[in-house]
Write a protein that binds this DNA or RNA. Structure first.
Lengths: 277, 277
DNA sequence: AAATTAAGTTCCACATAATGGAACAGACAG
DNA sequence: CTGTCTGTTCCATTATGTGGAACTTAATTT
């Protein structure tokens, strides 16, 4: 248990993906997605009444909504009346992942960075106030990738997240900050906007970010931001490992190859996707 | 190019997941899911007009529908006006996968089967007329799992699919067969219900199924069905590899360990999930 | 076993949200 | 400049989702 790679598999505060929980004006779809979020983010399979308590919907309405989600294969209802995420989600996602241009471009560079450091390499993108991990390169053993890839983690306590924030245009940063809920995963996790902003300033100056056991005790990382010229796309690369193996001095050294990797990815994005964005 | 593992990554006939394309009565959600299907199953990113031609919707309606999907993060609209699957799908799927009990139970047995044969091992489940791959164990190299896992393949031309059909209750089989569209991937692919049914009979008797290069030329496999007592759940395990390495004689030999693996998984399902189902 | 409570499902008058036709804007080509 | 092709906005109409309550069924208690 407790392998490094599991660090992101833990339950994050629910709703990291949503912009501070404010409802969207996507009509019926929005309400259904809230339900999907509820069920997929729950640690244990929920029963009808559990969902009824969480969702603010009358019984009849909720019943039909869940029925539709089940019929579409987005949720599954087992014989004991428990709702779980449906397999249709896997089909959608596999295509989303397989065709992601950013991931395809970055893959060889991630592999190179892994060879250079010998530690786990991650690729993530900023989505709202969350980092979504798109890829992972980890040496050896039958990889259990899916448990990490696709996972959403908060931006304020991950290396990739803070790196991404450091290149976010000021107006978007101001938009995002008030919505943050600081969940203190460890003693080192930022607890307020002020300390986060201060570090973001340092990161912007240095060009790289550290995660000093802020998301999970015993896990450190160095990350560098990756962004498109017009900032419509913002993400990052990181090297992650256990604190006993990765001293802060070593991470400091690795900051260079991590930044170089980020630059190579950006260069190739300009070539492949065109320089304008 | 053309490694074994890629065999499933190719484009299947669209809509394998849907029950013969007949529309569902899931109201607004159903229509939106059709759109999601269209975009995620397209080989290339579609533009507004492309989708307009494919979906049977008036312009105004389609525009709002796509807008909602984008706003929810299920689709992404790039600067050039092309729609692509959204990253939110990844987040949903990673949880669907990580919490799938069947997969968790099967994982160690798949690993054992892989050690025994040295070839790629797959785990799939029957969903409508498709097989959805839940897991894959492949030796060596940085695995690119996501491109396979979650993929939907037709049931009539894959080992796991035919094995699954062989344990499907007759009424459900009769329900499913008329909806099949036989896409002839290779010369060996079944082209009609009769020949498929004949083989299903043999498979039911033998307890295992072969894929004799029916889905992709040069790729063979042996598969055995896995099912719950009440048949509410039906899937299969397989060992897959290139024809030049896997003679039919060798596959015949491997049928035994594959069936043993399937049995072990079923035994453990009874223990962990209760024997009733 | 009967009574009581909780859990899940169905129904229908009503209100909200989706529809689709048409008009409007931008980009581009001739 | 004019015509066409593409994408976006508007709004009266209508379909769809809503939610309260009544109704089953299952589980728990007396």
């Amino acid at each position: 248990m407790g392998s490094i790679g599991d660090s992101m598999a833990q339950a994050d505060d629910e709703g990291v993906l949503r912009d501070a929980g404010r409802p969207r004006d996507t009509g019926t779809l929005g309400k259904l997605m809230v339900l999907l979020d509820l069920v997929t983010h729950a640690e244990i399979p929920l029963r009808f009444t559990d969902i009824l308590a969480l969702a603010n919907q009358p019984r009849g309405t909720l019943h039909r909504q869940l029925g539709h989600l089940v019929e579409e294969g987005l949720l599954e209802l087992d014989a004991e009346g428990r709702y779980a995420p449906g397999l249709r989600l896997l089909d959608f996602a596999s295509r989303s992942w397989a065709r992601n241009e950013f991931r395809l471009i970055a893959a060889p560079h991630l592999a190179a960075l892994h060879r250079e450091t010998g530690e786990t390499v991650h690729l993530g993108v900023l989505r709202g106030a969350s980092i979504i991990y798109l890829d992972k390169v980890e040496g050896h053993q039958p990889v259990r990738m899916y448990s990490q890839i696709g996972n959403a983690s908060p931006c304020y306590c991950t290396g990739v997240g803070k790196a991404a924030l450091s290149v976010l245009p000021p107006d978007r940063l101001e938009e995002l900050l008030p919505g943050l809920h600081f969940n203190r995963f460890t003693a080192a996790t930022h607890a307020d906007v002020e300390s986060l902003l201060a570090e973001i300033g340092e990161i912007a100056a240095a060009g790289h970010a550290f995660d000093r056991e802020e998301h999970e005790a015993g896990i450190r990382c160095v990350a560098a931001p990756v962004w498109s010229d017009d900032r419509s796309f913002i993400g990052g690369v990181s090297v992650t490992g256990p604190a006993y193996r990765l001293s802060m001095e070593l991470l400091q050294q690795w900051a260079v190859p991590v930044r170089v990797t980020a630059r190579k990815i950006m260069d190739e994005m300009r070539i492949r996707l065109g320089p304008r964005r």
